[in-house]
Design a protein around this nucleic acid. Structure first.
Lengths: 296, 296
DNA sequence: CGTGATTACGGTTGACGTAATCATA
DNA sequence: TATGATTACGTCAACCGTAATCACG
């Protein structure tokens, strides 16, 4: 189970073609064929059906292992490189849309005044992408938001020794169109909305899959899938009755046409965390410390 | 970053000796030396100090990556082998001490009546060991307990695509000696006990480290460390005033000399989960389903 | 000095490319 | 028949062992 072979395997499975994967990896068709043959003989199972190429049951299972494995391997490489290399003067921050609160951007502004030469890039991404990219050093710092029980850490994929620190906890609210029958309420139980129509915006609002897990039901059906990372667009959709969305209360409060109704049960909050490789020094760690200090 | 090299590296770091690691791995001293040299040149950093052998800062960091990485690699191997091999008639169950409730052992007894030929082994272990061993197929089924927010899954190390299903949720209680001033209370806030003396029994009761995380304080100091997996021994220690322990309420209720005082805040419960490789058939999956069905 | 890590060197193995062959849409 | 996977084979590098060397206690 050489990582090279695994890498080839995932490439072939993704491309659906030996030759295409070979091109992508800079190998010959033959080498790819030999890689797959080596893996299959090593594991004693057929991993791929050929012509057309598709993963068998065993192959599919192996893919579930291979992804995280290769990610962690890249993360380890990148982490060691980060320790070895000199600290950069440029810093790239990845943030999920709801993590971009005025509170956080404010402290970032303060930070820049003390270190004006620091080149800063902010990149808005989905939550999983941020975790992966922080681990593999494609980002210096991550700001991730999500839903959790009070004082509970977010459930982030385990991609290596990263430091996650809570920055904010805000109440959760449903974005209801102003004319919605429940719009007048001050609070609601989440389960009361299990049969409503929701907008599934996994990279922006709380993913519906998470609501189902938290509620233990298979409700929270999606009327619309929203791909992308723009909060305003989601709010506009919600205001015009396309469906509900679960968001931090301050984000939706005061927006015309929308009523923010707090979730009273189960006890869940919206949480933002800073994510970085747990180096003690360097601009990312300093900035993380500043964000943490500013919000406590 | 060949896994072979990583494996050699962790062996050397653990043994504190190239020659000892060579013996353990079945290599020559020379091969081990070459492995370490290859790793160091690949990563461009010195990983080990020699004479005596100890890990450098970079080496220590690499060790943090290498452990989980190699574990996942073993898990992937074992998982594929499990899919390929015929289902065994023997089943090995790993359980953390507090997961061994009459409720669970009862359903296991029922199960044996329907499948009397099934050879069953029960092995009591620490939580981490169970997760690792289920992932690497050293166990067919795991019963793990822990502390969590209501309806929240346990925070288990991510060692691959395992299925974790909730079996029980029980209230948490502190085991107080009967003569303790707070023993008469029906419930307590956990933070009120932050300055008390605790027994740190990470493999039996709730680990104190977790209490600190949940409470956000660095209290809950240990007066005694209890290694091992025997609940009765822990209770005896607690009854004779050696320190407090956090346990599921039913476990301590009714034991003479001990008062079980419920935890009212923060909202935390004791949860038990069944853990198994998510195969759909075979004895482990059937047993997991039976356990789940019996407790809902 | 002696134990233990490193370096030198050789044999074997394994990996990849070229090219021929096979199989399937 | 054409595209694309497999097999055959040659070359080259990588790996590990033997043995000599080096270095620290």
């Amino acid at each position: 189970m050489d990582p090279h072979l695994l890498r080839t395997f995932v490439a072939v499975a993704r491309c659906g073609s030996f030759s295409e994967a070979a091109r992508e990896l800079g190998y010959t068709q033959s080498a790819v064929s030999q890689h797959i043959a080596a893996l299959e003989s090593d594991l004693g199972a057929v991993l791929l059906r050929r012509r057309p190429v598709s993963a068998t049951a065993v192959g599919t299972r192996l893919l579930e292992h291979a992804g995280p494995l290769l990610l962690r391997l890249d993360a380890a490489r990148a982490d060691i490189a980060r320790l070895t290399a000199a600290p950069a003067s440029r810093i790239v921050i990845g943030a999920s849309p709801l993590a971009m609160t005025p509170q956080l951007t404010g402290t970032l502004a303060d930070m820049r005044q003390t270190q004006p030469l620091l080149g800063v890039t902010v990149r808005v991404l989905g939550r999983e992408a941020i975790t992966h990219k922080v681990a593999t050093a494609a980002l210096d710092l991550g700001l991730v938001d999500g839903m959790a029980a009070p004082n509970d850490p977010l459930h982030l994929p385990d991609v290596g020794p990263l430091t996650a620190l809570a920055v904010t906890e805000q109440p959760l609210a449903v974005a209801l169109p102003a004319q919605h029958p429940l719009a007048g309420r001050t609070s609601l139980r989440l389960t009361d909305l299990a049969d409503a129509r929701w907008i599934d915006a996994p990279d922006t609002a709380i993913p519906l899959a998470q609501l189902r897990t938290a509620g233990g039901t298979d409700g929270y059906r999606a009327s619309l899938r929203y791909e992308g990372t723009d909060v305003r667009g989601l709010v506009v959709l919600s205001a015009t009755g396309h469906g509900l969305a679960l968001l931090p209360q301050p984000t939706i409060d005061g927006i015309p046409g929308i009523s923010a109704v707090l979730i009273s049960a189960p006890r869940l909050i919206h949480r933002t965390e800073v994510l970085h490789s747990n180096a003690v020094d360097g601009p990312p760690a300093l900035l993380a410390a500043a964000l943490l200090a500013a919000t406590q």
